[in-house]
């Protein structure tokens, strides 16, 4: 894929996610983590380079592409406030169809993966998405080093990064991800112990 095709593909995926998200809108955290899950878990070649921050895997290029999608009116973002913070509601824009058409072949190839991410993670809140994607990130790092981890050890590593979560909660989330077959270094909660 050349640069222009990749750009069309990314804009189409962003537009599709915003258009089909539960409630008709998606937040920035959800958009970031859905792109991460699509690329890393489902192998959708979006060409992002995610690295870890305290708020989970992140690549500023996703927000850069979101900004392009906003300029083209493929999506529109509205600022919303909540106690102690703010967020964005990203919805389908007036020219969504142009973006979807430009990346139609790519979308058709990966429609199953987009269905999957929205089905499995579409209803999760920002904090949970940050945690779940961090668990997967730590798991993939271990897998690259050919390590086998127990749920406990994986949860401990994630807690080191996200100390504001209690370890039991992280273990529960990691077990759920393992049971769904989404972890590589930590296949399930029993065999790796």
């Amino acid at each position: 894929m050349d640069w222009s095709e990749l750009q069309d593909a990314r804009l189409a995926v962003i537009t599709e996610l915003a258009s089909r998200a539960p409630g008709g809108h998606i937040g920035r955290t959800a958009l970031m983590k859905f792109c991460y899950l699509l690329q890393i878990v489902r192998g959708v070649s979006l060409g992002y380079r995610f690295t870890l921050y305290s708020y989970g895997p992140f690549d500023s290029s996703v927000l850069s592409d979101l900004s392009t999608a906003e300029t083209l009116n493929a999506v529109q973002s509205n600022l919303t406030y909540y106690p102690g913070g703010y967020g964005y509601q990203i919805r389908q824009g007036e020219h969504a169809n142009s973006a979807l058409e430009a990346g139609q072949d790519f979308l058709n190839r990966h429609r199953g993966s987009i269905d999957w991410v929205l089905r499995e993670f579409g209803s999760h809140g920002s904090a949970d998405l940050e945690l779940e994607s961090t668990i997967i990130y730590a798991d993939r790092e271990a897998a690259r080093r050919s390590e086998t981890l127990s749920i406990e050890l994986l949860a401990q590593r994630v807690r080191d990064v996200k100390p504001h979560f209690v370890e039991e909660y992280i273990r529960g989330k990691a077990s759920q991800l393992a049971d769904k077959g989404l972890l590589k270094a930590c296949r399930n909660s029993v065999s790796a112990r």
């Binding site: 690295t51 921050y53 305290s54 961090t134 790092e141």
Partner: peptide, 18 residues
């Protein structure tokens, strides 16, 4: 590089690349 091995120090990564 942004790895879980940074542990709680990962909070400061925004000062290096953010």
């Amino acid at each position: 590089e942004g790895s879980a091995g940074a542990k709680q120090g990962i909070f400061w990564r925004d000062l290096i690349t953010g």
